[in-house]
Each structure stands twice: as C-alpha cells, then as structure tokens.
C-alpha cells in the first residue's frame, strides 16, 4: 500500500485518465484519421484516374497523329492526281483553242480573199462600163464631124457590139 501511496495511484485519477484517453481516441478517429485517410484514398484514386486518362489521351493522340498522317498522305496523292489531270485538261483545251483559232484565221483569210476577188471583179466591170461610156462619148464627138446622124448610129452600134464582144 505504501508503494501505491508513494506513486500517488488514485482510482479516480486512473479512471479519469482512461476515460480521457478514450475520448481523445474517439475524437481523433472521427475528426482526424477518418477524414485524412479518406482524403488520401480520394487523392490516390484521382491520381490513378488522371494517369489512366493521360495514358488513354496519349494513345488517342498517337492514333490521331497516325490518322492525320494517313489523311495527309491521301490528300497529297489526290492533289497530285488532280494537278496532273488539270494539267492534261489544260493542254487539251489549249490545243483545241489553237486549232480553232487556226481554222478561224484560215476561214477569215479565205473570206477576205473571196471578198477582194469579188470587189476587184466589180471594180473591173465598173471601170469597163465607165471606159465604154468615155469611148462612146469620144467616138460620138469624133464621128459627129464626119458622118450623118444615121451613119453615126450605125457605126456606133457596130462599135458597141465589137466592144461588147471584146468584153
């Protein structure tokens, strides 16, 4: 008993300390460990999800890059084909235009030559008529001094016939 008294053991103090620790245990469990362990778990899950998402995004990105390259290659090939076809078409069109213009030029030249021939023929005809008129007038004047009117008409008629024949 002396030892117990020396150490100051007291049932009330002992019980108080036991109850006190149980209260501390309850409070810390409810308000410290539980929220922190839940938070750590939540953070762990968030990090795991984030890593999984990053992994998936990386795979998707690689796939998208692959698709992009494939599409780009296809587009380049298609563009090449389109350019080639456009080039051929342009050459065909230009050849066609050249041919058409050549034909048109030749036609225009031919038409112009025809017109020139027609006009020169007309001019010649007109000139002939005019020259005949002048010749008739000169002949009338020259004959009026040597022949009668009747003779004049006969000569004139003969002369005109000759002229017409020569024409």
């Amino acid at each position: 008993m002396d030892i117990i008294n020396n150490f100051g053991l007291d049932p009330f103090l002992l019980g108080t300390q036991v109850v006190n620790f149980l209260v501390i245990l309850f409070v810390l469990k409810k308000f410290l460990y539980k929220p922190i362990l839940e938070l750590l778990k939540k953070r762990e899950n968030t990090i795991k999800e984030g890593l999984a998402q990053a992994e998936a995004a990386s795979i998707r990105l690689e796939k998208v890059i692959e698709d992009e390259k494939r599409i780009l290659r296809g587009a380049q090939e298609q563009a090449k084909k389109i350019i080639e076809s456009a080039k051929n078409e342009a050459l065909e069109v230009s050849r066609q235009i050249r041919e058409d213009s050549k034909k048109q030029t030749e036609k225009m030249i031919s038409d112009a030559q025809d017109q020139i021939a027609r006009e020169s023929h007309e001019t010649e005809r007109r000139l002939s008529v005019y020259v005949s008129k002048i010749a008739t007038s000169l002949l009338e004047k020259a004959l009026s001094e040597f022949f009668s009117e009747k003779e004049q008409k006969e000569v004139l008629t003969k002369a005109l016939k000759i002229v017409k024949k020569t024409n």
Binding site: F7, G8, L9, L14, T16, Q17, V18, N20
Partner: peptide, 8 residues
C-alpha cells in the same frame, strides 16, 4: 504520473 501511464 503513474496514473496516466497505467491508464494508457
């Protein structure tokens, strides 16, 4: 205090 350590 032995009361505390004994209680614990």
């Amino acid at each position: 205090d032995l009361n505390t350590t004994l209680g614990l």
